Simulated scan of single mutants.
Amino acid sequence: MTTLVVGIAMYLEGMAVSTWVMGAGGLITAWFVFGWFRDVVTEGVKGLYSDQVDRSLRWGMIWFIFSEIMFFAAFFGALFYARTLSVPWLSGEDAATSRMLWDSMALDWPTAGPANAGMEWQPMSAWPLPTINTMILLTSGMTLTVAHHALKAGNRAKLIGFMWATVLLGMIFIGLQGYEYYEAYAHLNLRMDTGIYGSTFFMLTGFHGMHVVIGTLMLLVITLRCMKGHFQPESHFGFEGAAWYWHFVDVVWLGLYIFVYIL
Rank of each mutant, 00 (worst) to 15 (best):
Phe37Arg: 06
Ala96Cys: 01
Gly14Lys: 09
Thr143Asn: 03
Leu137Ser: 04
Trp59Cys: 03
Tyr185Asp: 04
Pro130Ala: 03
Ala165Tyr: 03
Tyr245Gln: 08
Ala73Phe: 08
Gln52Asn: 10
Pro233Val: 11
Arg225Asp: 03
Ser235Ala: 15
Leu188Asn: 14
Leu220Gly: 10
Trp164Tyr: 09
Met227Phe: 03
Phe239Leu: 15
Ser98Asn: 14
Val40His: 01
Val33Phe: 09
Thr19Gln: 13
Thr19Lys: 15
Met171Phe: 05
Val260His: 06
Ser86Thr: 11
Thr205Gln: 03
Ala150Ile: 00
Ala112Ile: 06
Phe259Asn: 09
Ala16Arg: 13
Gly255Asn: 03
Ile258Cys: 11
Pro110Met: 09
Leu12Tyr: 11
Leu151Phe: 11
Ile132Arg: 02
Gly35Pro: 00
Lys152Pro: 00
Ala153Lys: 12
Leu90Phe: 14
Ile196Gln: 09
Leu90Gln: 13
Gly141Gln: 07
Pro130Met: 01
Met192Ile: 14
Leu48Arg: 12
His148Ile: 00
His247Met: 10
Asp108His: 13
Phe237Trp: 14
Leu219Asp: 01
Leu107Phe: 04
Ile262Pro: 00
Phe237Met: 14
Leu190Ala: 07
Leu168Glu: 00
Leu48Asp: 00
Gly229Val: 06
Trp121Tyr: 14
Ala112Thr: 12
Tyr245Lys: 06
Gly7His: 11
Met22Ile: 15
Trp109Met: 04
Gly209Lys: 10
Ser125Ala: 12
Gly170Phe: 13
Ala165Arg: 05
Gly77Val: 02
Leu85Trp: 14
Phe162Glu: 06
Phe237Gly: 04
Phe237Thr: 10
Gly198Ile: 07
Gly195Arg: 13
Phe32Ala: 13
Ile160Tyr: 03
Tyr81Val: 13
Tyr49Ser: 11
Thr134Trp: 01
Pro110Val: 05
Trp20Ser: 11
Ala186Ile: 01
Phe248Tyr: 13
Asp39Cys: 00
Ile174Thr: 09
Tyr49Gly: 04
Thr111Gly: 10
Ala243Val: 00
Ala184Gly: 08
His211Gly: 07
Phe80Asn: 02
Gly175Phe: 12
Gly25Asp: 07
Glu234Arg: 13
Gly170Cys: 07
Met105Trp: 15
Tyr261Ser: 08
Thr205Leu: 12
His230Leu: 09
Val260Ser: 08
Gly154Ser: 02
Gln232Met: 12
Ile196Trp: 07
